[in-house]
Write a protein that binds this DNA or RNA. Structure first.
Lengths: 223, 223
DNA sequence: CAACTACGTAAACACCGTTCACTCGACCGT
DNA sequence: ACGGTCGAGTGAACGGTGTTTACGTAGTTG
């Protein structure tokens, strides 16, 4: 992957494994299938990396966990731009949308880690009343589904919460936060900011601070 | 492009033009060079499309212009996902960062249209005092450069403004807005929202409303 | 009219995804 | 112990790709 998606060649892989190219067809239906499963593996690796970082953090300091996951995601994306492009910036028909399930989650394993932290974040803290005040009517149904997914993800880790602490406005805010985090990381990876940012890291951190601030976390130490 | 970047083949192009593949080397140094210049052409087309939409809008209604450009960008991206991927989601080493100039602007022509509207927006309206209150110190230098670019872009269209109406906080807010707009569009094109959004359009519109709201435009008609 | 240039071609090379016929060794039931 | 079956791998082949090279061939210029 280091040299881009086009460099992921059946013959190159076969050479590295010590077999011939047609032998790969015993394990993969086609090159596209191989790339799809490679993307899944990359997701799993990224998730493991983030989870390892999470383990080094106080289990009660949720905002520190948010920082760790988001910064870890950015750091990983900048260190592995080609992998990021494959997993997070490929059209679905070129990758099969990461999983045969109908709903196209964000890279299965990676999404789990992210949702878990997001769920714990809004569950661990009294939220401002005006958060996500005007969530559009048309999104209520979709957000309600996502709300249940978040609840299930959090409950899987032992913490019991009901939907009263996970209002739709907060769910909407989490979605908007993902838009901003993903947007910043992708723009940085692809060099598509409207001007040359000489040091994007403080910009990312201040965005995280603002996102957390809107959720009621103010005056944080930024670990 | 319709069938993806990989389908942009020297021989296919030559076939369509009625010559043979090696003849293309009279005009392009390599396939990569061709793709780079194709990306520039796509940017120009997109810019022309947006500008055509702008011409159908009252020249004084700046917020309507913002809606038109942002919605046009989203509509174009969804209608041309492969082109969007090539121009807005490709690593720089695979495309040369859109232009030989040192500073990697967002697709030259397209960026111009966007900056123009953004500049007119913040110049046409008294901004809230708390806008972009805590812009990180480390970004002051970069933002100042961007501020000058915005001023130059606006002045090029006849409107004379000085930097007093274009405070750094507003410039920072424009950058954050681009992060959100780009993030939403890219997530939608790539199907990487954390849950299945059955109708993303109101979500996009409400994001635009919020962005404009933060700049002091409240209770807008959404054309 | 000779020389030069722009434009295009055919052939070739190395590589690619994919298919097909084939071999080889391990395993299994009798 | 033996024939049969099956998974894993191979080599050859096909059509397609980017790219280079040598060659042609009109049109322009001195």
């Amino acid at each position: 992957m280091e040299h881009g998606r086009d460099a992921v060649t059946l013959r190159a892989i076969a050479r590295e494994v010590g077999i011939t190219a047609p032998a790969l067809y015993r394990y993969y239906d086609s090159r596209e299938d191989l790339l799809r499963r490679l993307a899944e593996d990359i997701c799993t690796d990224l998730a493991a990396e983030l989870e390892a970082e999470l383990d080094r953090i106080d289990a009660d300091d949720v905002s520190a966990q948010v920082y760790a996951v988001c910064r870890g995601f950015r750091r990983w994306a900048l260190a592995h731009p080609q992998e990021f492009t494959l997993v997070f910036a490929s059209t679905e028909d070129a990758l099969g949308s990461c999983g045969p399930d109908d709903r196209g989650q964000v890279g299965d394993q990676f999404g789990r880690v992210f949702l878990e932290v997001a769920g714990r974040l809004i569950a661990s803290h009294p939220l401002p009343d005006d958060l996500g005040d005007d969530v559009p009517e048309d999104l209520h149904a979709d957000l309600a589904v996502f709300q249940q997914v978040l609840l299930a993800t959090v409950n899987d880790r032992g913490v019991e919460v009901d939907e009263s602490v996970l209002p739709l406005g907060a769910v909407y805010h989490v979605t908007q936060s993902w838009v901003r985090i993903y947007g910043h990381v992708a723009l940085e990876v692809f060099g598509r900011f409207p001007f040359a940012v000489s040091n994007p890291e403080p910009m990312f951190d201040s965005m995280l601070a603002q996102i957390l601030g809107e959720m009621g976390f103010r005056h944080l130490t930024r670990p």
